[in-house]
Structure formats: C-alpha cells, structure tokens
C-alpha cells in the first residue's frame, strides 16, 4: 500500500541533500520496522517518490513523500506512525500520513505550486540617513513596482550551474510576489529587512528558486538584497484544482 507522508525539513536537516533523503527514509523505516516495498529486478530500489525537490539549505515546513510499504493492518497504522516518528532525526518531523487510494496521481505529476516565505536584508547602499533611506528602499517593494516588474513579457536570468552559465526566462515560473512585512534598520549599517511571500510554479518544465527571483528583481529595480543572508523556507507545496484553488497534496 502507498502512503503519503507530510514532514518538515528544518534545523541541521535542511542541509541534507535531496538525493540523500531517500536513504534517510529507508533507514528510518527500517529502524521503525515498517517495511518498504522494493522494485523487482536486477537492482532493486525502494519505492519512494518525492514531489518537488527542496533545494539544500532551505527550510521545508510541509514537504511530501510517497512511499510504498508492506500492507499494515488498519489498527496497526497508528502504532507504526508513532514508531516512525521516533526514528526521525532532529529537524525531520512526521506531520501526518495517509493511505493513498488506488490510482492517486504521483506527487510529481500532481504538484504545480510552491509557496515560499523569504526574509531578506536590504543593504544600505547609499549610506545616508537611516530613517529616510529605509522608507525609500522599502517603497520599491510595493505592489505597483512588483506588478509592473511582473508585467514584463520575459525576465531573463543567468543561472550558474557546474561552472556553466545558462540563461533562462524565469517569468513563467513566478505566480506572485507579495510583501508580508518590513522592519527597518536591524543593524548599524542601516540595512533593513523585508519579509516576502513568493509563489512559484512547479512542474516538468523546471523551477526557479526564490533567491533567483529576488536576484533578478534587485537587478532590474535597483534593490540591494543581501541574498547570502536571506532566510528562505518553503511553507507548502500545492496543486490547483479546476476552480483554480490551492489544495494540499493530502486533499486527494
């Protein structure tokens, strides 16, 4: 039977590479004595499939994985869940699991939306009086500028990958950017900090990181985001139903 599990990826665990997550779950399930089903064939591999990979270093508040396990009796489900929760390393918390009905679409095929929260400092590049400058800089993040920026046909971004630079249009991957909060002058240099919600498109065509979006926005609108110090978390991954409403992967 297939179970869909929601979990967190926080603290030190957020630095675990996506590719290493399979092994992590495999071992945790073994320790919890919940048996994972392996594929047949010459090189059997565990039937574990993720939705959208979470980039290394990002906090995931509610990530999902589908795992095929040997049938559990209904009355043992609760017990197995408790055992499994106790075998997860710090930072990985099992939030929920459910048995998937037959023919439920795979996470990979289902998910089309990711929601991020980003806290990012903005450097005081002008070195002027703090109060005035901060307000001025924050004003670039208002609704009009963002909408205006997003209204462009395409937004080109140079992605560095293994020493090569690939130019891609990131506009199709951005659903929305909104300002959630702002705080002036957190330090002596007079920098400020904004908190944003960024919603992106997930799918086969690829994806874009929130820091890439901010990199492009900063470049075009002259905002000095301190992206090295950005704190990014993914609050959830979703699929859009026919009415265009966001639904969680457990709502299937």
């Amino acid at each position: 039977m297939k179970v869909r599990m929601a979990y967190t990826k926080k603290e030190a665990a957020r630095f675990i590479a996506h590719l290493d997550m399979t092994r992590l779950f495999q071992r945790a399930f073994r320790r919890a004595a919940v048996e994972i089903v392996y594929s047949e064939g010459f090189n059997p591999h565990p039937k574990i499939s993720f939705g959208a990979p979470l980039p290394v270093g990002l906090v995931g508040e509610r990530e999902y994985v589908d795992i095929e396990v040997m049938d559990l009796r209904f009355e043992h489900m609760r017990e197995a869940f408790v055992r499994l929760s106790s075998q997860m390393p710090p930072g990985i918390e099992v939030l929920a699991w459910q048995i998937l009905p037959e023919r439920t679409p795979k996470l990979m095929a289902l998910l089309d939306t990711a929601v991020y929260r980003v806290e990012v400092p903005i450097r005081n590049t002008k070195g002027q009086e703090r109060g005035v400058e901060v307000r001025e800089r924050l004003s670039v993040m208002n609704v009009q500028t963002v909408d205006h920026w997003l209204a462009q046909k395409g937004i080109l971004w140079e992605r560095k990958k293994e020493g090569k630079v690939v130019t891609l249009d990131i506009r199709p991957f951005i659903r929305s950017i909104s300002l959630v909060g702002e705080s002036p002058a957190a330090d002596a240099e007079g920098s400020s900090e904004v908190e944003l919600e960024i919603v992106t498109v997930l799918g086969n065509a690829g994806s874009v990181r929130p820091t890439e979006i901010l990199g492009a926005f900063g470049r075009d609108e002259g905002v000095a985001f301190d992206l090295d110090r950005a704190r990014v978390k993914r609050t959830g991954v979703y699929w859009m139903d026919v009415k265009g409403e966001r639904r969680a992967p457990d709502e299937v």
């Binding site: 030190a12 270093g57 929260r117």
Partner: peptide, 21 residues
C-alpha cells in the same frame, strides 16, 4: 520574523549555503 533555532552557530550557518555538501 522566523529564525531557525537549530544548534548551528550563526556564523557556521551563514557559511553553509555557500559550500559543497
């Protein structure tokens, strides 16, 4: 505003996103 509580000291945490593995 959120901040990860984890046991990583802040400086190390600041470096990690920049290094391999």
């Amino acid at each position: 505003m959120f901040r990860e509580k984890g046991e990583l000291s802040e400086k190390i945490e600041g470096i990690l996103p920049r290094v391999a593995k």
